[in-house]
Structures are given as structure tokens and as C-alpha cells.
Amino acid sequence: MHTNTYTADFTNLDAIRDFVGGFAQQAGLNSKEIYAVQLAADEACSNVIEHAYEGIVNGTFDVSCAALPGQVTILIRDHGKPFNIEKVRQPNLGKNLDEREIGGLGVFLMHKLMDEVHFESKPKEGNVLTMIKRKSGGA
């Protein structure tokens, strides 16, 4: 597993997408699946920067990637405020323009784009989000 550390700054999202995209490619995922992995990682890291490190300066978080044939695993670890994505309410996509919630969309997309999304918050280790994407039709 390879790990990069980033400061909690939105300008790092470009580098993060490139980092995870490289591993998705290495795992043999197709271009649609690679885009999905990049988008899910962006949404997850955006949440870390925006919510976990809200009001905290100089925060950093780790993004780790592992590629197996036909499968890529992304692990995002931060030491900010616990932000349990499993508790985020699912946006109601059936609602009309005026009623549509602005938030919750990133988490919704992460679940839709990835095959597995797990969140764990431990006092010593921090918040860990694990996401797995598999090549469609098996490895």
C-alpha cells in the first residue's frame, strides 16, 4: 500500500485524483471506473477538508492506495473531527428544484460510484474511510 500525505487544502484535490487514478489504472479498471474512483476520492477528501478540519489550521490527512488485478482500494485517514458519512442523510433525488438539498450529494455519489464504502472512527488512529472499486465482470 502506498501512502501520500496532504495538507487540508482543496488545491490538493488535483494531485489526489492523479494519485488514485494511477492505481485504478494499474488495477486494470476501464476509463469509466477510473473516473468513478477519482470522483469518489475527491468527494471523500473534500468532506475531510470541509468538515473534519473545519476551523482547524495545518491539518493533514493520508491517502493510501493499493492495486490488485481488477480491484483498487483507497484508504483515507484523518485526525480531525469525526465525520461519519454513514450518518449523512441521503439526498432525495426525486424532489423538485426548490426542494433539492444542497448537501449530502458527495456522500451519495461515493456510495453509488464505489463497490464498498466503510467508515471507522478510533480515538487513537483517527477517522478511516475505506473504499473499494472492482472491475465490472470480475478481475
Binding site: 484535490l13 485524483r17 473516473y35 477519482q38 470522483l39 475527491d42 468527494e43 473534500s46 428544484l97 426548490d98 433539492r100 444542497i102 450529494l105 458527495g106 455519489l109
Partner: peptide, 19 residues
């Protein structure tokens, strides 16, 4: 080349405003 939900939200807010 790319748009995340942050871009979608900007479009949504502007669509509300325009309509």
C-alpha cells in the same frame, strides 16, 4: 474535463436563481 459535486452545487444554486 471533470466536475465534482461542488460544481453540481454551483449549477443548482444558479439554476434556482435563474428560474
Amino acid at each position: 474535463e471533470y466536475m465534482s459535486s461542488a460544481g453540481f452545487r454551483a449549477l443548482l444554486a444558479a439554476q434556482r436563481n435563474c428560474k
